[in-house]
Every structure is written in structure tokens, then in C-alpha cells.
Design a protein around this nucleic acid. Sequence first.
DNA 1: CTGGCATATGCCAGAATGGGAATATACCGG
DNA 2: CCGGTATATTCCCATTCTGGCATATGCCAG
Lengths: 118, 118
Amino acid sequence: MESSFAALADPNRRQILSLLLGSERSVGELEQELELPQPSVSKHLKVLREAGFVEARVEAQRRLYRLTPQPLIELDAWLGPFRRFWSKHVDALERHLDRLEQLEKKAQAPTPKGKKAP
Amino acid sequence: MESSFAALADPNRRQILSLLLGSERSVGELEQELELPQPSVSKHLKVLREAGFVEARVEAQRRLYRLTPQPLIELDAWLGPFRRFWSKHVDALERHLDRLEQLEKKAQAPTPKGKKAP
DNA sequence: CTGGCATATGCCAGAATGGGAATATACCGG
DNA sequence: CCGGTATATTCCCATTCTGGCATATGCCAG
């Protein structure tokens, strides 16, 4: 999954994934919606394909691309440990902000380089 | 958040995040645990810092780095729409795999490489 | 101020990457 | 078989990124 993040690092590729979220699309359709030259679209699709994000279905001379869930699931899994971390912190942050509000009112005295009270 | 994925594209940087998940660490500690030269560690930290993944606390002449939840939360949010997609597909996938097993037995048609047609 | 430690930054060569234009491959209809 | 459409691949150029090395900056102790 090392290359998953690299594949997502490009905005055009993320855009492609978002479009495919709605329905499968041919290269030509993506070309129009992204307003990119066709070779560029094909190249991005190649990266996404090799990273396992999409797969192509051959219909006549078109390739219809669609999402595949695998790398997204792995991405979610990678995020798992961090999710525990931040959900712990969101609460703490809220409480902390409340506290800061209180403290700011009291600590208005010593401001070494701040602005002087008018 | 455009650069978040780029920041995560590097294995060393992901490793740093994992380490910081446990506890905050100085640059020197990371240097040892990652077995990377110090300038390299500092550069990776800079990328992570600018992408908002970490922040530094100055203690004497050390910098103690720790995680910040913000970009991870955004990453999770970006994943949201796709999560709906794949959770719908996991079921379908399982059924699909069962089917493929059946098909494979029939479709053993040998086409290893381009042979001339008879 | 001087020395010493911890960290950051600047510089350089090498590798990877994206965009653009041209071309090659694959498939269809007749 | 041929022309025409749809997609993939190749080549080239400019940019970017990484790693290694050297060096600058910041901070503490005396």
C-alpha cells in the first residue's frame, strides 16, 4: 500500500476517483469532465490502476473505469490508530478552549512583549 | 489539504507519525529510531509541520514534536463518501468472489501468450 | 563571550513525475 | 482488407523531491 498515498497526492487523480464514485466512466468522458488532454487522463488512470484504486471493463473499443474498494479500505485501516488518537483529542480540545477563555480573562496582567493595555 | 497526501506519500514520514502516536519525541530520538541522518529527519519534520500533521514544543535546545489531529481529521472526512461506497460493495464483493470461483473452473481456457490462430 | 550540543538550512547530484505532442495499438463497421 | 474511433504508450522538457554533506542558527553552561 506504499504507493496508495502517492497515487492520491495528485488532485486530478482524486478528482477522477470522485467522479467514478458516481458511476463508471470511459476515458473520453473523464477527458471532458476533467478538461485534460487524453494522454494525461490515460496516464493518471494507469497510476490509479496500478495502485488498485480502479479497474477497467472493456466494452467495444472503450474502457469503462470504475472504483475498486480495496485500497480505500486499507487507507481507512491505516487511519485507524490515529482515529483513536484524535477522537481523544477533540474532546480535550473543546474543554481546553473553554479553559483558555477563562484564563485569558485572568492572565491579562503580565504581557512581556504584547501590547500594553490602553 | 492538497499537500496532506503528498506528505503521507513518504514511508519515513508515515513512520514518524506512527512513532509520535505513542508519545512526543525529540528530533534526536526520531533520528535513532528511524536510523536516518539528522538533516533528513529535520526535513521530513518540516514537511509534516507545514502540512499541519505535527507541531513542535521547544524545551531547552530540543524540539519535542507531537501529533496534531487536524489533517488526519480532514483525511478521514475526505474518505467519507468513499466509505459509503465500499461498505456497499464489500457484501457484493464476497458474493462476486464466490461466483468467480465457479467461473474459474469453467473458464480454464488456455491462452498463455499470443499464439497463431489455427 | 566562548565552547558545545541540538536542530535547521543551503547546496548539489540523481531519480521520479507531470504536461504536451506525436505515435502505436486495439477494436469496430463495411 | 481499409478507414475511423478510442485508448495506451513513448519521447522530451521542466519541475520537484530526496539523500548526503557541510554549515548556519539557537540555546545552555561557565
